[in-house]
Write a protein that binds this DNA or RNA. Structure first.
Lengths: 259, 259
DNA sequence: CGTACTATTGAGTAGTATCAAAGCGTGTGG
DNA sequence: CCACACGCTTTGATACTACTCAATAGTACG
């Protein structure tokens, strides 16, 4: 469990608000825009169409962030949450011994920064694992909007509640095999929910990142994956992954995921 | 790590809304009422005095719950969150192997049920570890109120954000000693924040509960406590505890608590 | 083609869990 | 009031999971 902060050299200021990477709110940007998912969810919570317009006025599309580039760092002043539009974001902290603890991986459609609301500063780092596009929501502004749009407020409450439960599950006491299976099945489901293949996908994170997330040693991650492959549960080549026996993996993961 | 659901025999319906245990909103009840803490926090967030009245209209004082009595159970329909006014509440789940996983202990002034907002049903059980009094807030009603009182909304956001961070810390990868020290220092600080002694207090939970919370075996909890005592960090007799060397305990807990 | 980094593999070990049994407190019934 | 029984806690001995250390292998990049 070594783990060192992957430092993407000199990044610009954290979570830039208006820089060259911000681009217009054009149709092309909206096509894969998770704001839509965000908006959809708010509509599902009862928000009306006019709210949609207000919400879209609020959002800023930022990116691309390149691999290794930080979106925000621990201690940066908190101003905004963001929905991932494309790519994968890793959030992590580094303890005083230099060990990295990965808090989570955030896929398209998922929201980062919710753990920063209590406090003026981000309590963790967020880094792009590949090319990342974001929808940025100023938190003061989206809060105000949430008082006017109950559907939006409800969606935010739900997102945060979900994160509490997810973190609690992740805190549970499980074997290396169970945690790895739960991690893979979790990825699979989240990708499937966004229209990606649930059985063939890329691990956008390094083995070390997986290890630091699952609180395992990198060597253990390697060994578990290899054993899973020997047992016919999956095929793994470098970062390319295919789940060849999802049912058995799910059975392993079931106690962790409670499903 | 055995852990079995402590079942307090036949409880009445979950989270009763109006029963014999509900009592009037009189001065005596309010004296130690965490609604006050809740209200204070909302005022600190900018809520005005009229909001205070609205909030107090909303709250229902329920209890007492006796030791072992359940406040809600996994699967019960979600209708309300609650602030602990007195006593200790344990939240936990039981996995399919019958192992109990303790999600948290909730002291006076703390709020339970926030992880249930996403979903129609409570995702966990809540049980009284001693005599517990609660302030119940109907969630639909407090949501509506939150759209009218930005200070209240802000407070709810903060509470939930804090829970996300807390759960993430708890999920970290630490030694038995570090986890135990962090647990004790955490208790101490939370008690101190409510005006109790930070150095002398009761462990209201069983060793098994502590073990299931810290994902340790009960035997390990015993051994660590005994070693801490041998090393002069604390004095423990049954459930009576005195921290005799808080600085050293804090040093142990520091990487976990990030303080 | 060489270098650097990440991933894999192997051997030995540390830290906790597990199993078994005894101790202690508390409550109960005689 | 005492004897007993039950539950929780403690203690000891042993086992096992996952870590650590060390070395090799494989990839990506210059």
């Amino acid at each position: 469990m070594s783990g060192r902060a992957a430092d993407g050299s000199g990044d610009p200021a954290a979570f830039p608000r208006n820089d060259s990477r911000t681009f217009a709110n054009d149709g092309d940007a909206l096509r894969f825009c998770s704001t839509c998912a965000f908006s959809q969810a708010c509509l599902a919570e009862g928000m009306d169409k006019s709210g949609l317009a207000d919400l879209h006025m609020l959002v800023e599309h930022i990116g691309p962030f390149r691999e290794g580039e930080h979106i925000f760092r621990e201690g940066d002043p908190f101003e905004a949450i963001a929905a991932v539009r494309a790519g994968t974001v890793k959030t992590y902290i580094v303890d005083r011994d230099g060990r990295e603890h990965v808090l989570g991986f955030h896929l398209p459609g998922e929201v980062i920064g919710l753990n920063a609301i209590d406090g003026d500063h981000y309590p963790c780092n967020a880094v792009a694992l590949d090319t990342v596009m974001l929808c940025r929501f100023s938190f003061p502004r989206i809060s105000v909007l949430a008082t006017q749009l109950p559907g939006l407020q409800r969606h935010l409450f739900r997102l945060m509640s979900r994160d509490i439960s997810r973190a609690a599950l992740h805190a549970g006491d499980w074997s290396a095999d169970q945690r790895m299976a739960a991690f893979l099945i979790g990825l699979s489901r989240r990708l499937a929910a966004r229209g990606f293949s649930p059985t063939r996908f890329q691990l956008t994170m390094a083995r070390t990142d997986i290890a630091n997330y699952l609180r395992l040693a990198p060597e253990t991650v390697s060994r578990v994956l290899r054993r899973f492959q020997r047992d016919g549960l999956l095929q793994v080549d470098r970062r390319e992954l295919e789940l060849t026996d999802p049912p058995r993996l799910q059975a392993l993961a079931a106690p962790v995921l409670r499903s």
